[in-house]
């Protein structure tokens, strides 16, 4: 696949979903402003550390991942039939097309997470960059898994969406509670395990999406239209 084709697919998809992306960013700004950041007074520094992470990561991880899932589902068949048709009839391999199609919702989800982070910053609760990286890794993994829901129907689609929920929950749990012994290295362990988990899940999600896209049946037998 040429860079030009990749750029054309990504920019055209982003342009087609510009209203949804704008809406997602506006919603992220509002939620970023109103998300509660306060924690109860805790004297034990380790408990306070876990409490901070649990409160500060909950918003961006769950909210931005939900937005990532929604933006991924917006790429589903039928919504932009003219783009689906153009991409499918182009001389591209399934895995190339999968990569290109995955970039657009990932960029949109990144934008949403950035707006969320900026809103937090403006409201006086600037989350540390590490938290942003953790949230972003979670959003990428969830978005890539959610793309699978666009190429399957019925039970498999429900399974893909269930895996999205599982991915967010697992990423959140790892980044907050990964260190069961509450050692001084809690942050490092949490960050490392969450990033590793999200990288593996994201890679598997993208790979499966490529497979699903290669075997995707665009025809709806009940209506005879793709």
């Amino acid at each position: 696949m040429t860079r030009r084709a990749l750029r054309a697919i990504v920019t055209t998809r982003l342009w087609a979903e510009r209203r949804a992306i704008l809406f997602a960013c506006a919603t992220a700004a509002i939620v970023g402003f109103i998300q509660p950041h306060g924690i109860a007074a805790i004297t034990d520094p380790l408990t306070a550390d876990v409490a901070t992470r649990s409160v500060w990561l909950a918003g961006p991880m769950f909210f931005c991942s939900a937005i990532g899932v929604a933006l991924a589902l917006a790429q589903g068949p039928g919504r932009r039939g003219y783009l689906d048709s153009g991409e499918r009839s182009a001389p591209l391999f399934g895995r190339e097309l999968a990569r290109a199609k995955a970039i657009a919702p990932s960029i949109a989800a990144t934008l949403t997470a950035l707006v969320y982070w900026f809103a937090q910053y403006l409201s006086g609760f600037a989350a540390p960059p590490t938290f942003f990286v953790l949230a972003l890794a979670c959003v990428y993994a969830t978005t890539l898994v959610a793309l699978n829901a666009t190429v399957y129907r019925g039970g498999k689609r429900a399974l893909a969406l269930g895996l999205c929920a599982g991915t967010v929950a697992a990423a959140y749990a790892l980044s907050v509670y990964a260190d069961p012994l509450q050692t001084q290295r809690g942050d490092a362990i949490g960050v490392a395990t969450e990033l590793a988990f999200c990288a593996i899940v994201g890679f598997l999600g993208l790979r499966q999406y490529g497979e699903g896209l290669a075997h995707f049946d665009p025809i709806d037998p009940s209506t005879g239209s793709g």
């Binding site: 039939g81 003219y82 048709s85 009839s89 182009a90 001389p91 591209l92 391999f93 239209s225 793709g226």
Partner: peptide
């Protein structure tokens, strides 16, 4: 992918 180089597809919609 090679086949698609030889064909121009026009959808119904």
């Amino acid at each position: 992918a090679h086949c698609k180089r030889l064909v121009g597809f026009v959808p119904h919609d």
